[in-house]
Design a protein around this nucleic acid. Sequence first.
DNA 1: AAATCGCGTTTCAATAAGTGAAACGCACTC
DNA 2: GAGTGCGTTTCACTTATTGAAACGCGATTT
Lengths: 231, 231
Amino acid sequence: MAEPSTRTVSRALDLLAAVCDAGDVSLADAARRTELNSSTALRLLRTLEGAGFVRRDDDGVYRPGLRIVQLGAQALSAESLVSLAEAPLRRLVEATGESCYLSVPHLQGTRGEHGIYLAMEEGTHSIRHTSWVGRTVPLEGTAVGAALRGDVPDAGPEAGYVVAGDVVESDVTAIAAPVRVPAADREGRIVAALSVVAPSYRMDETTVTACGRLLAEEARSILHAVETADS
Amino acid sequence: MAEPSTRTVSRALDLLAAVCDAGDVSLADAARRTELNSSTALRLLRTLEGAGFVRRDDDGVYRPGLRIVQLGAQALSAESLVSLAEAPLRRLVEATGESCYLSVPHLQGTRGEHGIYLAMEEGTHSIRHTSWVGRTVPLEGTAVGAALRGDVPDAGPEAGYVVAGDVVESDVTAIAAPVRVPAADREGRIVAALSVVAPSYRMDETTVTACGRLLAEEARSILHAVETADS
DNA sequence: AAATCGCGTTTCAATAAGTGAAACGCACTC
DNA sequence: GAGTGCGTTTCACTTATTGAAACGCGATTT
């Protein structure tokens, strides 16, 4: 927030982000997280509450309100990156049989960065499991995190993807590839990651390699789609 | 916005909603929708843009930014209503084989109200189709809309649900039931709708009735879950 | 070609909108 | 009982915010 901006609004948006990141937060904690005087925070949170962006139940704790859910869901459905990734995700599921995901970087206030899942397609083997949209994933120790950080080999047999035993779920192998969009430098800018997650017993070395290469290929297909749309 | 609030923040949130509702909007149109002076709107939109809530491409049009997508997705995954509806949605799919949805009311500025889909479970028959999360549905002429408006028989053979040939998609039958939470009156307050959508050729009268009753029952199970959590 | 219209952007005087320190009551802990 | 932290209210102060006006530009109309 180094650019000229409307200070009051910036403060309110910081509070909104703090509530969403924390999931539930007291007034005092919200004020601390945003380094605001508590009466200022109270006033701004009351405005956010009145507009439905946060809610406050009888326990006095602030939580995200339906308005951010509504607008976020609406924006998610209109998000071009999600649309562009849909066909690649589906192709990946057809080719691998495993569940595949699109994730993007997610700033989380002062608590470092995470990734966040925006879309998924379920694998053909899978027992049904809960929706991953909106879940966050650490940038350290995960394949998705490494892809989002750009910590990916760019030459050799594993070029374009990264493999990890996922720290979030054990006995699971995750493979991820960064999705780039055109930028000033030749490499492009990483805006998302495609990933495949499967139980390790199904992922021998040959399968991992094949999956990884598919991922890298589909990530490039998204870049191509962006470049085509731009010209 | 009749309560004491921070005017500047309220204005910025109105602009954010206008951008999300419109999908793409010029500065002049955003200012008109929110009845703000254009230099005020420019300044507030610049703040929203700086914080990532809206973005402005070379065409000068404002669109939702990644930040609202991120926070919205995060809030969606934490939303208790979505969690509570997950098992009922899955049971409905198992019992009917059709795709099932959770939707909530969605205020859309001065343009009347819509519903918005927050969750779905795909049916077992279905050809894969695109994600419905975030899509809006008119309140008039649809089963979901009627359920969200409470325009549902509360006695008789069709108590608790409503059936419509869906105006959004033809040759489709939609059945919906309102989800209520405890409120001061005995009826409770409608906060969401469960719906089943299927091609009409699969929905004879007996099937419709069975589906409808299941929907009403599952809607009641959510109410029970809420009441249990509150006590 | 000239006039008109609408758009987006910048500037600045005016003011009222927003702020934070202080006070207070309450609950909890030692 | 004393201390601590929380949430809420109050109010004097000031600065953050505002909108009218000006301007350049492109598109449309006369």
